[in-house]
């Protein structure tokens, strides 16, 4: 579903390597956790997938479409929620969702069905007519996720989705990821919250200084580092090496 092939990205004329030879494949129906310390290259990798940054080297494919040569086909397969969902303050929630649904060519019938389910699930039905500028951070996250799911994308990409969410909203997000996965679709998300990754992900990848240093199921990672502890201890062991 998502394939990074030897991806590299550098800033400041090549002086700072943000991502260095990343090679990774995420399978359909999988929840994949992308972990790493601050500044490891998680957000840069995600931004390259969704077209916000260009890779210097390598190839990224989404649902079989090269993000460079077929960017629109690749984007059609993605639903994306960034780490800080800066949405248009001067649009209402409904106007924003309608805009996104129009751009993804979601029919009136489908958008009504999906919207009703999502706004009720996220408990934002009372705020959809308000300007987004009046939303709390959590509500913006929920609206961004609603927009990302309105076209039922095969690949859902979330950058630090749990940051700033209250426990109930965080629970809803996890439920939704599971549900998305149960429908045969894929979730790729970055996080610092290792407990969430441990409980939710089928596989995790750990990135450090732009390089993928570990990847697999929790058992495979434990085996790699010769530890029997939690993901946290595995993570610390791997990233401190």
């Amino acid at each position: 579903m998502l394939r990074f092939q030897d991806i590299s990205k550098a800033y400041q004329k090549g002086k700072v390597k943000a991502v260095d030879g990343l090679d990774l494949a995420v399978k359909p129906g999988e929840i994949f956790g992308f972990l790493g310390p601050n500044g490891a290259g998680k957000t840069t990798s995600i931004k390259m997938v969704v077209g916000l940054l260009r890779q210097d080297e390598g190839k990224i494919t989404v649902n079989g479409h090269d993000t460079h040569s077929e960017p629109l086909r690749a984007k059609e397969s993605i639903g994306f929620v960034p780490d800080n969902p800066d949405l248009y303050d001067k649009l209402t929630g409904m106007e924003y969702i309608n805009f996104i649904a129009d751009v993804y060519k979601v029919s009136s019938f489908e958008r009504r069905q999906r919207l009703e389910r999502l706004v009720n699930m996220f408990e934002i039905s009372g705020a959809m007519g308000d300007l987004i500028g009046s939303f709390s951070h959590g509500m913006k996250q929920k609206l961004a996720l609603t927009a990302a799911l309105i076209h039922e994308p095969p690949l859902l990409i979330l950058d630090e989705p749990m940051v700033g969410l209250d426990p109930r909203s965080a629970h809803l997000f996890k439920e939704l990821m599971n549900e998305h996965c149960r429908q045969g679709r894929t979730v790729f998300f970055s996080t610092h919250i290792l407990d969430v990754a441990e409980r939710l992900c089928h596989r995790v990848g750990i990135i450090k200084k732009g390089k993928l240093i570990a990847c697999g199921t929790l058992d495979e990672l434990r085996h790699q580092v010769g530890q029997k502890g939690s993901l946290e201890s595995v993570f610390l062991e791997v990233t401190e090496q």
Partner: peptide, 22 residues
């Protein structure tokens, strides 16, 4: 924060969630 207080019930969604061109 200002809330308009409109609750997006099935009826409201049906009225407002209408497809248009890109």
């Amino acid at each position: 924060k200002v809330r308009r207080g409109i609750v997006y019930t099935t009826r409201v969604i049906e009225r407002q969630a209408v497809q248009s061109s890109t």
